[in-house]
Amino acid sequence: MFDEFGGPDVLHVVEEPAVEPAVGEVRVRIEAFAVNPLDQMMRSGASPAPVPLPHARLGVEGTGVIDALGPGTNGLKIGDPVILTAVPDASTRGSYAEYVTLSASRVVARPAGLGITEAAAVWVAYSTAYGALVEKARMRPGDHVLVTAASGGVGRAALQIARQIGAVPIALTRHTARTDELLAAGAAAVIATDQGDVVEAARHHTGGTGADIVLDMVMGPGQQDLLKAARPGGTLVTAGFLDPRPTPFPGGTPLTIFSYRSFEHTLDADAVKRMAAFLNAGLRLGALRPAIDKVFALDDVVEAHRHLEKGLHAGKKIVVAV
């Protein structure tokens, strides 16, 4: 929990009794959870949504085993391994805990063959990338897809998902040194902003037409180049806000522009079924696999947040084992 906004040191472990699940809820004994940039924003007071203090909690993803069933819960049983699909009230029942109670509709079966560490880190990145590219932008085989912040968790997931669909993922990164790593992660080509012009390079890698879909995880003034890197009639999906600077309004552009937030689909039961089916297929085929950086213990959650803030994870997922 944390009682004030600030750096990693505001986090502290507290002992509380486990809450009994209400009607339609399950209680999950958490085995591991991932640390996300949203957690850092909530903790520091920079979250786009209000976080009530004191006694605020963190955590929007994790994995564990169903420990108790509330009245009227069907289709699940105690002992089932599951993944959390949405924690919209993370400040009150986040996954940074030994036990979490939430609606039974907010869990899906943990994919067979997926280890606990990877299962803790797979849902947020892959559901966000899938929702933005497939559900929102209607990505199709053969589409050229320009992915910004490609070294991050969602960016890496987007590269793999595009490849699984049969699209052509083009990674955009700030550093040329990331080129080999991103090609290995699934990119068909890499554009590094420290080496060349984004618009010119995007035209080069798309045969002169421009990208069919641009996934913007950054926002800020740099979005103007992304608008020019897309083909006329293409699609821009904004799904992140890594650049805190103002983003000029993209008026007069011949593009379809969507703003995407993951809860748009992770709170939709039918969309979650499609996401889970796609994820399971990709994991079975080996096309999808989260990149894990480091695993911390629950008592070391402060150090895990320091690791995130220093950028030592290099875009890979930080996991905390409970």
Rank of each mutant, 00 (worst) to 15 (best):
G72W: 13
P169H: 08
V147D: 07
P81I: 06
S95Y: 01
R178A: 15
T85Q: 02
L84I: 15
G142K: 10
V168M: 07
S127A: 15
H55Y: 09
G72T: 12
R178M: 14
L58W: 03
A149F: 13
G75T: 03
G131L: 07
L159I: 12
T148S: 15
L133E: 05
A125T: 15
P88R: 05
V107Q: 05
E135C: 01
L58R: 00
G131H: 06
H175R: 15
A149K: 02
K136C: 12
V154P: 06
V100C: 03
L172W: 07
V124M: 15
V122M: 12
R156C: 08
A167Y: 05
V107E: 05
T176D: 13
P71W: 04
A149W: 11
G115F: 02
L58K: 01
V82S: 02
L172I: 13
I116N: 11
G79T: 02
A121T: 10
G115A: 12
P81M: 09
I161K: 08
D143M: 10
A86C: 11
G131Q: 06
A150E: 11
A119T: 08
A90E: 09
L159F: 05
R163I: 07
A97L: 01
G115Q: 02
K136M: 12
E98H: 12
S95G: 07
V87T: 14
V87Q: 10
K77H: 13
G152F: 10
T148F: 06
V154Y: 11
D143I: 03
K136I: 15
I83H: 04
T92V: 14
S103Q: 03
E135Q: 14
A167F: 03
A121I: 07
I83R: 11
P81G: 06
S127L: 05
W123F: 14
R93L: 08
P169M: 11
M139D: 10
A56L: 05
A68S: 13
R140H: 14
R106K: 14
L146N: 04
R174H: 14
I78N: 00
G115S: 15
L114G: 03
I170G: 03
T85D: 03
P111G: 07
V108A: 13
S151R: 13
A132L: 08
G79Y: 06
I66C: 08
I66A: 06
I66P: 01
R140M: 14
A56H: 02
S91H: 14
M139A: 04
Y126S: 08
G59A: 02
V122Q: 04
V147L: 10
H144A: 15
I78F: 00
D143K: 07
L172Y: 11
G115W: 03
T73E: 01
A129P: 09
H144D: 13
A150R: 09
S103N: 12
P71V: 07
H144P: 00
T63R: 01
